[in-house]
Simulated scan of single mutants.
Amino acid sequence: MRILLIEDDRKTADFVAKGLSEAGHLCDVLSDGRDGLFQAQREDYDVVVVDRMLPGLDGLSIVRSLRAAKVNTPSLFLTSLGGVDDRVEGLEAGGDDYLVKPFAFSELLARVNALARRPPVQERKTLLRVADLELDLMRRQARRGGQLIELQPKEFTLLEVLMRGEGRVLTKTMLLEQVWDFHFDPKTSVVETHISRLRAKIDKPFEVQLLHTIRHTGYSLHAPG
C-alpha cells in the first residue's frame, strides 16, 4: 500500500513513517502543506495521512482542495486538535477519519488499513490497460493483443491490483493485504504460486514481458523501456 504522510513535526513523521514501512507499506513524507497538496494530486496513493496545522497550507485546505479536484483518496487527519467541533470540521472538509495526538501506532495502522479497504468506487476505472494488455472489470475479462485470457478469480484480482499499480513495485505484504486480505504473513507461497500462474497466462505466450520480479522486493507490471 502506498501512503502519503503530510506532517511537519519531524519526530512524529519519523515515528509514523518507520512504523508504516515495517508494516510493509511505502510511505512518502512531506512537511509543507502546498507540497503535500501537489504530491497528492500528482501521484496515486491509497491513503493520505495529514496533520491539520501545517506550514504553507493547512490540512483542512489540503483535503478540501483534493475533493474539489475530484481526488477521492481516503484521508486521515492526524492532529492535536481533538475537540468535537474540530472533528466535525475535519470530516465536513472531506476527511474520512480523525485521530488525535498522542496516539498508539497500532490504532493508526488499523485505521489506515480500514480506509484502504474502502476506496471510492465511483472514481475507479472499469477498463484497465497496460501496453496491449486489457482488463475489463465489468465483463470480468482479460485480453492481450485482442486474445481472450482465462483467469481464475484470485488471478483476476491479482492482475487488477498489479495493473492499478502500473510501474510501481508491489511487495508480497502489499499483495497479501490487497488480494487475500491477510494482514500477516501466512508463511506460504500463495503469492509466488499465483504470480507464476499469472505470468504463464499473460506473458509466456507473448513476445514482450510485462510482469517483472524485482529481486528481494516484489513485483511490478509495466511495459519495458
Score class of each variant (00 low, 15 high):
84 V>T: 14
68 A>N: 11
67 R>F: 10
45 Y>R: 07
78 L>W: 00
38 F>R: 13
69 A>N: 15
76 L>E: 01
78 L>C: 05
79 T>P: 07
33 G>Y: 07
46 D>P: 03
39 Q>V: 14
50 V>K: 01
79 T>K: 00
65 S>Q: 11
57 L>G: 06
59 G>L: 06
43 E>R: 15
68 A>P: 00
58 D>F: 06
50 V>A: 04
45 Y>E: 04
45 Y>A: 03
73 T>K: 03
70 K>M: 13
62 I>M: 06
79 T>L: 01
57 L>I: 02
77 F>Q: 02
59 G>W: 01
55 P>F: 04
52 R>C: 11
52 R>W: 12
82 G>D: 07
73 T>Q: 05
37 L>S: 07
73 T>F: 08
74 P>T: 09
53 M>P: 00
59 G>F: 05
33 G>L: 03
53 M>R: 15
48 V>F: 08
47 V>L: 09
79 T>Q: 00
84 V>K: 10
84 V>Y: 05
72 N>L: 13
56 G>T: 08
62 I>P: 10
48 V>R: 02
68 A>Y: 07
60 L>V: 10
69 A>I: 02
51 D>S: 09
49 V>R: 04
36 G>L: 09
75 S>T: 15
61 S>H: 11
41 Q>S: 10
47 V>C: 12
43 E>A: 12
56 G>M: 08
41 Q>M: 14
42 R>I: 10
51 D>R: 08
76 L>D: 00
54 L>Q: 01
77 F>H: 00
76 L>Q: 02
70 K>W: 10
82 G>P: 01
64 R>N: 07
59 G>S: 06
56 G>D: 04
81 L>Q: 12
38 F>D: 14
55 P>V: 09
53 M>C: 12
42 R>V: 11
40 A>R: 11
55 P>I: 07
36 G>R: 03
84 V>I: 15
83 G>Y: 05
48 V>C: 05
